[in-house]
Amino acid sequence: MLVLGIESSCDETGVALVESEGEGVPRLLAHALHSQVEMHQAYGGVVPELASRDHIRRVLPLAGEVLARTGLPLADVDVVAYTRGPGLAGALLVGAGVACALGAALDVPVLGVHHLEGHLLSPFLSADPPEFPFVALLVSGGHTQLMRVDGVGRYALLGETIDDAAGEAFDKSAKLMGLGYPGGPALSRLAQEGDPEAFKLPRPLLHSGDLDFSFAGLKTAVLTQAKKLGPELPARKADLAASTQAAIVEVLVKKSLAALKATGLKRIVVAGGVGANRLLREQLDAACARRGVRVHYPELSLCTDNGAMIAMAAAMRLQSGVEAASGSYAFDVRPRWELGAVLAA
């Protein structure tokens, strides 16, 4: 079974082709991605209308690029999958519309995929795929969640952010320091030059006794510290960035370890854009190695939004019998869509 996946939830257009055979882990044949970062930099953030228009320009050429890389004709595609939500409504409609048009033209089924489930299952695209069950740390954009994963569609929420997510803390703190867009990666790069112990920043909910997250207080503390530094901020910016990153990573690592202890599991998956953070990987790897816990990540190139994770999630859902692809080409999108809504019965 060949699954063509389309991702267009925000500012990256992704297309991929995944092959599924029997009960084995589906295999990525090819993927292509276009990032809109340069286009949005002038505005300091994503402009939804511009994002939608750019998706329209990119999606079909990217699909052609993927097919050319595999040498397979479009007629060989068995299922077309797309990101149904969450995300920007206009951007989601582009992917949904193209997917359903392709499905109708090819007379094949289509399947709408939850964006976060795509991230959750993206480590299965790596050379070292995980095995069920495992704890998952989802750190993608506006979401920070810890989940117990027992199989495809069998997810139990252990804890989540109650205000700003980790990715938002990175981006908003970066903006307060004048680091531009996208802020998270810029802050992480600058942090490599600074002292992570230079400033004593809070670790919100670190000792709360639960697995929830809160990073709004950290953002406020960064703002307060930046104001205190005043004209000294440019000279101390790297130290402030390093201290901010250290606070976020410490919370993520310690909450992840607490989730492993609470569940008794010995395997953890880290997925989403923040999962590419080098300090997070180093500290989590070291902590889990001391406890005999296996850690799995998607490949660095697949941490951010991409079509491969959408095609993989669709293939795994179909393979496991959790959901049948729809033969209808009517579609809708769900800009706000809780992951719990896609749980298996």
Rank of each mutant, 00 (worst) to 15 (best):
P335G: 08
L300M: 10
K200F: 00
V113G: 01
P109R: 00
T244Q: 07
S214L: 10
L92N: 03
M39I: 15
K200N: 12
A63D: 04
A99M: 06
A191S: 09
S20F: 03
L62A: 06
L62Q: 13
G275W: 04
W337H: 09
Q41R: 15
V270T: 02
K219D: 03
F170G: 03
A276G: 12
R57N: 14
L29Q: 11
T263M: 02
K219E: 01
R334Q: 15
V108A: 01
D150E: 12
Q36T: 09
A247L: 07
R236W: 03
G87F: 01
E338Q: 11
V274W: 03
L146K: 01
A271S: 15
G85S: 13
W337L: 13
G118C: 07
H40R: 07
A246M: 04
L33F: 08
K228E: 09
L190H: 04
M177C: 12
L223H: 03
L302P: 12
G24T: 15
V253Y: 02
A32R: 12
A221S: 10
F134L: 07
L229T: 03
I268C: 00
T144Y: 01
L72P: 02
P61E: 11
E232Q: 13
R290W: 00
I162V: 14
R291G: 06
G209Y: 14
A262T: 05
S188R: 01
L252Q: 12
E323T: 14
L146S: 00
L17I: 08
G272W: 02
D11T: 10
V222T: 04
G95A: 11
I56Y: 02
V15D: 05
P196I: 02
V80F: 11
A81Y: 10
D163L: 01
C288W: 01
L257Q: 08
T304P: 05
C303W: 03
S126T: 10
L240T: 00
C100I: 00
L138M: 10
A81M: 11
G321H: 14
A42E: 15
L179A: 09
R290T: 08
V274S: 05
L67N: 06
P234Y: 06
R154M: 00
G340C: 01
E250N: 09
A324Y: 07
L300A: 13
V322S: 12
L343F: 06
V46R: 07
A241V: 01
A186Y: 03
V113K: 04
K227H: 02
E49Q: 07
H143W: 05
A258P: 10
T161N: 05
S320T: 15
A287G: 06
L252M: 13
W337Y: 13
V249G: 03
V113T: 02
L92F: 06
A136M: 07
L33G: 04
V222Q: 04
L137N: 09
L158C: 00
I6S: 09
I248W: 13
V342C: 10
H296M: 02
E38R: 14
L343A: 12
R290Y: 00
G44C: 11
V47D: 11
D171P: 08
E323K: 15
G24V: 08
A32N: 12
P196R: 02
A127L: 11
L252Y: 07
V139T: 15
L280W: 01
E131A: 15
V80N: 08
Q145I: 04
S52P: 06
G327M: 12
E323C: 10
